[in-house]
């Protein structure tokens, strides 16, 4: 079940979208990993997050390990926050997710710069905002889905 979920979220990161929506596409994989770490019944391991990041790098043809590092980092923080986040309202959860997605994006941005192809357009940060706005919907859907399965 979890594998299917991750596979779907990976596919969602490469599905072709119309050009004007494309820069808004949230990082579905990061969102799914965050949900698995924060809210699923059994917190997902760090290693799974890391390997999913590696697959994402391979899928997108990026520097190998870039997203893996970023995802492992935010998964670690999410796992540490796991018990506290239950007490949060959805809005507060969104704020936390916003922070974590921003951190994820920042790590990727930073590595992009270090490896010699910086992408400094401001639209790069839009998916973070969209992802955080997407969180209530996604977590509600996934929790219902998980409860049924």
């Amino acid at each position: 079940m979890m594998i299917l979920l991750l596979a779907l979220s990976l596919a969602a990161t490469v599905v072709p979208l119309p050009t004007f929506i494309e820069p808004l596409r949230p990082n579905f994989l990061a969102l799914t990993v965050l949900w698995l770490c924060l809210l699923s019944v059994r917190g997902t391991g760090l290693t799974l997050a890391w390997s999913m990041g590696l697959v994402l790098d391979a899928l997108h043809g990026l520097l190998l390990g870039q997203n893996a590092l970023a995802l492992a980092l935010i998964a670690y923080i999410a796992l540490k926050m796991r018990l506290r986040i239950r007490a949060f309202t959805t809005l507060q959860q969104s704020a936390v997710v916003f922070g974590l997605l921003a951190l994820n994006e920042f790590v990727v941005f930073w590595i992009d710069g270090l490896s010699g192809h910086p992408v400094t357009v401001w639209t790069r940060w839009l998916p973070v905002l969209v992802g955080a706005a997407f969180w209530p919907l996604l977590s509600g859907f996934l929790s219902r889905f998980a409860a049924r399965a």
Binding site: L46, L63, A72
Partner: peptide
């Protein structure tokens, strides 16, 4: 460990 591995990979 994972960070070290990913940095080495990169």
């Amino acid at each position: 460990v994972l960070c070290a591995v990913s940095i080495a990979l990169m």
